[in-house]
Design a protein around this nucleic acid. Sequence first.
DNA 1: CCCTTTTATGGAAACGTTTCCATGCTGTTG
DNA 2: CAACAGCATGGAAACGTTTCCATAAAAGGG
Lengths: 364, 364
Amino acid sequence: MAATIKDVAAAAGVGIATVSRVFSGAGAVSAATRERVLAAARELDYRPSAVGRSLKTRRTGGLGLAVPDVTDPFCAELVAGVLDCARSLGQHVLLDVTLGDPAREAEIAERFAEQRVDGVIALPSGSGEPWSGFVRTGVPLVYAGRRPSGHPEGRQGRGGGGEAARARAGGGVPAVLADDAAGIRSAAEYLVGLGHRRIGFLGAPAPGAPPDAREDAFRAALAALGVPVEEDLVARARPTRDSAYAAAAGLLQRRSDLTAVLASGNLSGEAAVLVARELDLRVPADLSIAMVDDVAWAELCDPPLTAVARPGRDIGYRACELAARDTGRETGRRAPSGPVLLPTDLIVRGSCAPTPIRRDRARH
Amino acid sequence: MAATIKDVAAAAGVGIATVSRVFSGAGAVSAATRERVLAAARELDYRPSAVGRSLKTRRTGGLGLAVPDVTDPFCAELVAGVLDCARSLGQHVLLDVTLGDPAREAEIAERFAEQRVDGVIALPSGSGEPWSGFVRTGVPLVYAGRRPSGHPEGRQGRGGGGEAARARAGGGVPAVLADDAAGIRSAAEYLVGLGHRRIGFLGAPAPGAPPDAREDAFRAALAALGVPVEEDLVARARPTRDSAYAAAAGLLQRRSDLTAVLASGNLSGEAAVLVARELDLRVPADLSIAMVDDVAWAELCDPPLTAVARPGRDIGYRACELAARDTGRETGRRAPSGPVLLPTDLIVRGSCAPTPIRRDRARH
DNA sequence: CCCTTTTATGGAAACGTTTCCATGCTGTTG
DNA sequence: CAACAGCATGGAAACGTTTCCATAAAAGGG
């Protein structure tokens, strides 16, 4: 049906090798011949087949990208970053969503392997073994936005932990991450600086043993500020609207003495805003709200929401660079120099205020 | 490097044809042999190469998907729908973003063609010739969420226009769309029903001759309701935050007598909310706002925004079905029975109110 | 027990490229 | 003028599958 290189060669009266040279750019072809070939190709609407080429060159020009949910603003930014970079590298992108389900992650990894992608960028969920299993294929893998839980070094990027521990963490898989710990810390410091002491945290669930990295960061930040961390100040939710809402409602009702809430994601943030409205809490007079992820609606809220911005787009871009870089096969050692940490930014808007007077009174 | 079918055949002591049969499921293989092959494959970590297979079978199992911007909530939903459907069909998805740029669309179409995808789903911008040129490849193409402008039949899906005109429109390319005209109409009727007469419209630009389909629908709806459409009641913006903001600010300042605004997209909606706040207009007391696209933040706004919900996910899903359906090659005629129109839904929230009394007064 | 189906298997030819190698030129250089 | 470098070109061998065809063995029917 579609014209092949042979058709073009025949039409132009040359050998297929010559046609190949014209299209791949390699090798010398006289101007006259090139023109003849190009004309024939145009005539036949010929387009070199990527699958034929891939078979021979053993490179497909494709990158695999797996995120939990394209509909999530952060993921979407990350995807956009990857697409941007991939485009500039001349690669295309196979996208799939994991929904945070390890079984699906495994299927997707399998598919990427079969498709012989040149590299993979994954925003893993849970412990991420579907991906650590994938590295055996030899295809470059990069974690983006998050890396599998269960890493010994609690506070990534800080001085602690030798190179060895670092290499062990993430199984030697490079990662490009937001500096969540610093982001959470900045938000916590801000809230504490406003006088808040009873600060709720809306986090992600930890099905396995290790608690979420952000929750760790939250506890650590409060501890460092000398604020005691009560256990039932943190609520966990699965990454769905319903679950987030339930968690937020539970937390705010259980602890009516809360003066501030820090949401670890935009879903939790949404839930916090909604629940506060439902409970007739004025923001920020009665309750201060801060959130991780500076999504578009943060500015549209009333009051506009204070948020920790994570550079989703940059994360995707850099991760893609890494995934494609090692693609120059047989580069030998890929420096496992620890994760790339991109800075977060605390965007102060109107949703946080100094601790309400009467609450402080009631306490004395 | 990676094991091939030959390695497995050698390891299992069988011919490559047998290995192929084991993995493709076709043909008869004795249980004992199958087991032996599977064991050898597991041992070698063998995975059949999709590129080898694709070369032979002339199907890649891939679908191309092009949207203007993954970061836009509607596009993201659409993408999610496509991924969902593709997964259930056992296809994978190549995603790329057009940014509304025809040149990029052309490049993407070219890439899809080279990659020999089995089908393409596109949310076209402008007149969409990059895509209408693509149909010559014989690869099934489906428009989703929008179709190229310049279609003779103004009010799609309504009685008017013969089958011939319909087939001409969109160049015989099937399309899955939200029933925008009905959606706009419902919003317009709602606003007029509340007493509004001077209703602004925030639309998309029309670089070429034909105005945006939604703008047409807006004019038609108002006309049908007996409300005169003044020309400077509509403002156009490019699909960027800045442009949308500028358009909204321009409109609201130019026409301070406006009592309501209908935004034709979520970017315009954002802009309307922001500008109203900037201008100290109380919503809905001073200005009613309604918007097309029921995004997450519509409910978080204060007041929550009335919106026309478009079934982005369903659109993606159905479009994917169509793109993959015709993939059973040589099905003959692909019924060009006009676009599939999916219903919209007017979600009434708190951002629209009856016309302010004093404005009506001032008018008399 | 022979002939005919069925079932299990392997060989080999595609599929559309790239690339190595060989061949025939045209100019240059000693 | 001989030899040789360099260029333009074509032939053919991969790359990893699927699938047609042939063969061989096993099963069934009279």
